[in-house]
Nucleic acid binder design. Sequence first.
DNA 1: ACTGATTCTTTTTTT
DNA 2: AAGAATCAGT
Length: 749
Amino acid sequence: MSLLLSGLNNEQLKAVTLQDQSALVLAGAGSGKTRVLTTRIAYLIQSRQVSPHSILAVTFTNKAAKEMLIRISAMLPINTQGMWVGTFHGLCNRMLRAHYQDAGLPQAFQILDSADQLAVIKRVLKDINADIEKFPPRQVQWFINNAKDGGIRGSQVEASDDFTRKMAEFYLVYEQQCNKEGVVDFAELLLRSYELLTRNEVLQKHYSGRFSHILVDEFQDTSQLQYKWLRLLAGAEASVFVVGDDDQSIYAFRGANTGNMKDFERDFNISEIIKLEQNYRSHGNILDAANTLIRNNNGRLDKNLWTSEGDGELLRVYNAPTDLDEAAFIVKEAKSLYAEGVKLSQIGLLYRSNAQSRVLEHALFNASLSYRVYGGLRFFERQEIKHALAYLRMIANPNDDNALLRIINFPARGIGARSLEQLKDSAKEKGGSLWQAALENRGGVVLNQELGDGTLISRIENRAAGIPKKGLNSFVFLIESMQQDCLELTLPEIIKHMLEHSGLVPHYNSQREGANRLENLNELINAVTSYIQEAEDSSLTAFLAHASLEAGEHQSGNDQDAIQLMTVHSSKGLEFHSVFLSGLEEGLFPHDNSRNEAGGLDEERRLMYVALTRAQRRMYLSFTQSRMLHGQTRYNIPSRFLKEIPEKLLKFLHPVQEPAATGRVSGEKNYRVDAPTRNSKLRMQGSASGILDSENLKWSIGQNVIHAKFGEGIIVNCEGGGSDGRVQVKFSQYGTKWLSLEYAKLTSA
DNA sequence: ACTGATTCTTTTTTT
DNA sequence: AAGAATCAGT
C-alpha cells in the first residue's frame, strides 16, 4: 500500500486517494497523469476493495489502453479481464456485440472505417443520381458524422434551407443502406450504444449499477455524445474521475468539446479541481517556451507548468533553404545525438501533416538511420490487406456491399461493368444487398438455410456438377464454400484458408511489384497470431472489428531502436530526449485550413504546445524558405508561433556556406552557432532561384522584403525585368499581392 | 472485358 | 507528387 503510493507528490496523492466522489483533475503535460490514473485504479482495488468488475476506464487511443493494463498488472497480481478498459469506440463495440439484438444489428455486423464510409456514401449518392459537384461526398460524410456526434438521426435533422434538406435526405438513404448491409461507421458505434442505453432502461440500470468507478483519460477530447454516454453509464451512483488538459485539446475537428470540462464540473458537483502542475519531463527553457506560447490563447483554465530541474539548453532554431536541406540538417543532428549516446528511439521527429514525412524518410534512409513512421498508411489500410479482409468480411457477413465490390472481380474472374450493373439493378429492385441479389441470379439447385440474424448459408447441391471458373457463379460458389469450410476452423486456419483459396497470392505473385504485398499478406498471419494471444474473443468477427478499430498499431519492427516519425497529433502522450519539429511555416503550421475555422488558430497553437512539451532535454525547431508540396514549390514565411517564443530562449543555427541556388539537389551542410542577435531573428538566409533583374540581382524568389504599407513578406514570384518588373509578394498580414517595382516601395529585410 | 495511358483530384489532424 | 478515376484501344 505505502509502496503503491510512494513517490507521489501531494497533489498526485490527493487525486489518487480521493474518496467516492467525482473529480476533475487538470493535468499538465508531463505531470504524471497516466501514473495517477493507473495508481488510482490499483488503489481502488487494493485498499478500497473495489472489484475490477466494477471499474470502467476510457482512454483515447488503443495504445493508451494497452499501456494502462500493463501498468496495472505490474502493480497488482490481479486478473484485469473483468475490467472494462478501452477507447470509447472499443467499449461501444463491446457493448453492441453483447446486445446486438436489442441494438437492432446482425450478430456479425461490420465496422466501416472512414474510407469505407466514404465509399458507401459515394455509392449511395450515385444510386440516387445526386449532383456530386454540388454535394461532394466528403462534405456529406462530414455532415453525417457531425449530426451523429450531436446525437441526431437522419429523420431528426432540422432543415431550414435546401442544402440542409438535401443533406438530410442523403443521411437517410445512407442510414438505410448501412442497415441493409449490416455495417456501422465509427460515429454509429457511439450513437447506437447511446440509444441502446436511453431506450433500454433495464440495460442502463444494469451497467450503471455495475460500474461504480468510471475513469476517463484525455477528457478534453471527448465529444458531446461521448459525454452523454458517460453520464448514462454513470447514473446517479458512480464516481467519475476524469483527467484532462484543456491546453492539449487538439481534436475539435472531430467533435471534441472542451466545454465538457465545465459541464462536468456542474453536472457532477465538483467543488474543487485538482491541478497537477509539476512537470517531470522537460527542462525549464522548454517549459518556459511552451507556457509563454500557450498564454496567447483565450479562455483557458489557468495552469502553469513548472519544474524543479534546471533551465537546460536553449531551443535550437534552424532556417533551411529547402525541405531537402531541412531533412539533411535533421539527419546530421540526429547522427551526432546518436554518437553522443542518445538512443534513436529517444529521438522524435514531428511534423504537422503526414505529407511531410516522405522527404524526411528519404533522407534517413539514405543515411542508413533506422526509423519508424507512425500513422500514414497503416497496416490494415493497405490495399492487399483490405482485399484480404474483404474476403474475410464476406465470410462473416456477405451483405457487406463494400467488401463484395472490392473483391467480386479481384483477382479478375470475368465480372465486368456490365454484369455488375445488372447485379446492382437487381439488388435495387429487390431492396436487398448485392449478395442477396447474386444468390437469386445464379443458376443451379441451391438449398438456402437462413440463420436467425438473416445471414444466408447455402448448401451447394451441384458442387459435383462442376464449379464454373468464371463469372458471377464462380464468385458465389467461392464465397459459399469458404463460409462452409470455415465453420469449423480456428481464426489462423481461416486466414490461411482464405489466402489459399481467394487467389490473392497467385495474383500478387504474378505482379511485378507484388513481392511487398505478398509479404504483407504473410504478415497478416502474424497479426492474427498476436491478436489471439491477447484478445478475449478470438472469433473472426471480433478480429475484423479489431482490424477496423485498431488500423494502426500492428507494425513490425516494434522493438528495434529507431527514430520515431509522426504527426504532432499522434505524438500526444509521448516523450523523447530530443525532438525535431519540422516545417514551422505559415500555411503549414499553423495550417492554412485552420484559418477559416472558428478557434482554428487556437487549436493550432495548442498543437504547437503539445509538440514543445514532448521534449525532455533538447528541442529543435526548423523551417524552410521553399518547400515542395503537392507537386509544386511553395515559398513560406516562418510560423508566427516561432515569434511567440521569447527570443532569449532560442539559439539560432546557420548554414555556413550559402545554399545551392537552384534545383532540388542538396548535400550536407555545415552550420555554425550564433548567439541570438537582433538581425538573426527569424530572417531567411541566402537566396533561392528566380532572378528577376539581371542588372542588379536585387530581387529574387524566396527573399524576405518589407513594404511600407503591408509590412513583411516574402517574394513568391517574379515577372519581367528592369522598370517593367513585377513581383508577387506573400505578406504575413495582407495575403499575396502583385507589386510593380516601379511604384512599390520595397526594401530588403 | 481487360489493359495501359491519360486526365483529374486531392492535398490536416484520427477513433 | 501520388493515387484515383476515366478513357481509348485491343
